[in-house]
């Protein structure tokens, strides 16, 4: 699905990533772990096209998309959520999800201004579809609330609904459990499994080790911008380098 080869990223003098190569296999949940500042978010930014990589290539289903802008990648079914929730704060919850349906609709500036009949039916279609995704994450009652007023937990759910509305092939989630309490985290684990059951491949950056160990099929460990190890959760847990560099201090 997503293949990274030799990814490096420098910010001025700082090397945030170096020599990152791994693949996220279709249908899997791949965890990307590592201490703060390891470069996980930067990696997602490169995968989704927010920054270009300084070196290396990003391939999606074998296609080199290294220099594609994010909006073009979205049309290939690559989408993400953000560590510091990025909602459309002044829009309603439902409208947020409707933006997630942007790639599946096409009325442009003229069709919208003139209210063409087909534009009206498209509008109805995406409205219904958006409601479906609010239902899916469990916040249908909030549809008319302004997104900026949502609690942290609900905001995260909305971000997931918005991303799922895009019918992604690959969903990258950046610390979705951060700031959630334990029952919310359990619900999240369940939600991510349901997402996988819809045959969406998931990339998951997360600090909550219980969650990671529970749901991930394979793990990539980053430390100081380099790859420390890859493998199944089992293997990672037993990897002495990881234990000293990361698990030892984080747990």
């Amino acid at each position: 699905m997503l293949k990274l080869t030799g990814i490096g990223k420098r910010f001025g003098g700082l090397t945030a990533l170096q020599g990152i190569s791994f693949e996220i296999v279709p249908g899997s949940i791949t965890g990307i772990i590592g201490p703060n500042g390891a470069g996980k978010t930067t990696l997602f930014n490169i995968a989704t096209g927010i920054y270009p990589p300084s070196e290396g290539a990003v391939l999606l289903d074998g296609k080199d998309i290294s220099n594609w802008p994010p909006e073009k990648r979205a049309y290939l079914g690559l989408v993400r959520t953000f560590q510091n929730i990025e909602l459309f704060g002044k829009m309603t919850v439902l409208e947020n999800v409707m933006v997630g349906l942007h790639t599946q609709s096409k009325s442009g500036i003229f069709a919208c201004a003139l209210r063409m009949p087909w534009q009206m039916s498209e509008e109805r279609r995406i409205r219904e579809e958006a409601r479906k995704w609010l239902e899916f994450v469990g916040i249908p009652e909030l549809e008319n609330v302004e997104a900026g007023t949502l609690s942290f937990g609900k905001g995260r759910l909305l971000e997931i609904a918005r991303a799922m509305a895009l019918k992604p092939k690959l969903l990258l989630m950046d610390e979705p459990a951060a700031g959630l309490n334990s029952s919310e985290t359990a619900d999240l684990a369940d939600l991510i499994k349901r997402i996988r059951d819809l045959r969406v491949t998931v990339g998951l950056v997360e600090h909550d080790m219980d969650l990671v160990m529970d749901i991930c099929d394979s793990l990539v460990v980053l430390n100081l911008g380099t790859m420390l190890a890859t493998g199944t959760p089992r293997e990672i847990q037993d990897n002495p380098a990881v234990v000293t560099a990361y698990l030892g201090e984080a747990e």
């Binding site: 909602l87 829009m91 942007h102």
Partner: peptide, 22 residues
């Protein structure tokens, strides 16, 4: 409509809007 929502999305978070394909 779709176009206006796209504009407002850009206003609130350009990066998220782009990730959604806007």
């Amino acid at each position: 409509s779709r176009f206006g929502r796209g504009l407002r999305a850009i206003h609130d978070s350009e990066v998220a809007a782009r990730v959604m394909g806007v």
